[in-house]
C-alpha cells in the first residue's frame, strides 16, 4: 500500500436499532441499539478487521454494507457513491462489486444444488458469459480457493463436502464475480483450527492476487492480528479503538481492548505478556444513556466523566484512534 490511503468504503454516522416485540401480557417492545452512530473508512486493498463479542453489532455492519438490512440513519459510500438508497439496476450493479462470505458453511450452501450450480449462480444472475465460458470462470475460481482439480468437485452436492470444502465453495461463489470488496463474516468460526488456517491463507492470497479489499469480521483478536492490516474493536454498537493491527495488539489504548487481550488464553510464550487488569470485577450500574458503553465494566472509568459523557473517537497517534477520555493522558492502575 502507498502512504496516501485511498478509502474504498466509507461508513458515516450509521445507526441501527432493532425493535423487539412487546410480550403478550402488555409491556411495550424495547429498542435495542445495535450500532450507535459508527463511522469508519476502509482503504483500498487492505484487510480490515472488525473485532467484537457476540451482540457487539459487528455482523450488523457487514449486513448493512451489502444491503441485507437498512440502517435507521447514516450513509455508506462505496467509491464515493452513496449506496444505502440504491434500487433496481443500480443496486444490481452494486451487488456485482460487493460480495459476502457467510459464517456457517453448513447453512450458506443450498443442499439441493451442486457446486457448479452454486458458484455459477452469480454469473447467471448478471448474465456474464455463455455456458462454456462460465464453466471456465467457475473452474478458475475453484482453483483459486484450492478446490482442485475442479472436475472432482464440480458436480458434487454439499452433503458430500467437508466443512472446509464447503467454505471454499462459498468463497469461490463470492469471488467469481471479481468483486472489489468482500465481507467475510466469521468465515472460520465453524471450522477446525487446521482448516481455519487454510481459509485464512486463501483470503490472504485473494487480496494478493485479485487486489480485493476485505472486511474481516471476527470475535478473535488473534485471527484479526494474523490477517488484518488494521483492526477496529467494537463493543455494544460503539467503536472503541481503530488502528494498525500490530499496534492494537501490542499497545492497546482502550481499557476494553486491554481487557480483551487479558482474557485471551495464552500458551507458549507466556513470559512476555503483561496483564492490564482493566476489567471491573463486579459490574456497576450505567448512570444514564450517555455514559461510555464500557463504563459498567471499566476499572479506569470515573463516575463524573465517563458516566456522564460518551467519549468520541480521537486520534492518539497517526492512524490510531481511541474512544476513551483517558486514552490521551494515560491511566495507571
Amino acid at each position: 500500500m502507498d502512504n496516501q490511503p485511498n478509502p474504498i468504503l466509507q461508513i458515516e454516522d450509521i445507526r441501527k436499532v432493532y425493535k423487539t416485540k412487546g410480550s403478550v401480557l402488555g409491556g411495550p417492545g424495547t429498542d435495542v441499539v445495535a450500532l450507535d452512530r459508527i463511522s469508519l473508512e476502509i482503504y483500498k486493498g487492505e484487510i480490515f478487521g472488525l473485532v467484537g463479542e457476540s451482540g457487539s453489532g459487528k455482523t450488523t455492519v457487514g449486513r448493512l454494507i451489502v444491503s441485507l438490512e437498512k440502517a435507521n440513519q447514516g450513509e455508506i459510500f462505496l467509491d464515493d457513491v452513496e449506496i444505502t438508497g440504491l434500487k433496481g439496476r443500480a443496486l444490481k450493479g452494486f451487488r456485482r462489486r460487493v460480495q459476502m462470505i457467510f459464517q456457517d458453511p453448513y447453512q450458506s450452501l443450498n443442499p439441493q444444488r451442486s457446486v457448479y450450480d452454486t458458484i455459477s449462480e452469480p454469473l447467471a444472475v448478471h448474465a456474464i458469459g455463455n455456458p462454456e465460458t462460465r464453466q471456465e470462470l467457475v473452474e478458475e475460481a475453484m482453483k483459486s480457493v484450492g478446490l482442485s482439480p475442479p472436475g472432482d468437485f464440480l458436480h458434487r452436492y454439499p452433503h458430500r463436502l467437508s466443512g472446509g470444502q464447503r467454505q471454499r465453495v462459498a468463497i469461490a461463489r463470492a469471488m467469481v464475480l471479481r468483486p472489489q470488496f468482500v465481507i467475510a463474516d466469521e468465515p472460520t468460526s465453524m471450522l477446525d483450527a487446521s482448516i481455519s488456517a487454510q481459509i485464512f491463507n486463501i483470503l490472504l492470497e485473494m487480496r494478493e492476487n485479485l487486489s480485493v479489499t476485505i472486511l474481516f469480521i471476527t470475535h478473535s483478536l488473534a485471527a484479526a492480528r494474523y490477517l488484518c492490516d488494521r483492526i477496529a474493536v467494537i463493543y455494544r454498537g460503539n467503536l472503541m479503538e481503530i488502528g494498525p493491527g500490530e499496534e492494537i495488539i501490542r499497545s492497546p489504548r482502550h481499557p476494553y481492548t486491554q481487557a480483551l487481550i487479558d482474557a485471551i488464553p495464552k500458551f507458549g510464550h507466556s513470559g512476555e505478556i503483561k496483564r492490564y487488569g482493566t476489567l471491573l470485577g463486579t459490574e456497576r450500574e450505567g448512570t444514564n444513556g450517555l455514559c461510555c458503553a464500557f463504563f459498567p465494566r471499566c476499572k479506569v472509568a470515573s463516575e463524573t466523566r465517563c458516566g456522564e459523557e460518551r467519549p468520541r473517537l480521537n486520534e492518539c497517534s497517526p492512524l490510531h484512534s481511541v474512544a476513551c477520555h483517558y486514552a490521551e493522558e494515560g491511566f495507571e492502575l
Partner: peptide
C-alpha cells in the same frame, strides 16, 4: 438460511 441471503447478495 444464509444461502438465500448469499443469493440476494449476488443480485438474484
Amino acid at each position: 438460511r444464509s444461502f438465500v441471503e448469499a443469493a440476494k447478495v449476488a443480485g438474484a
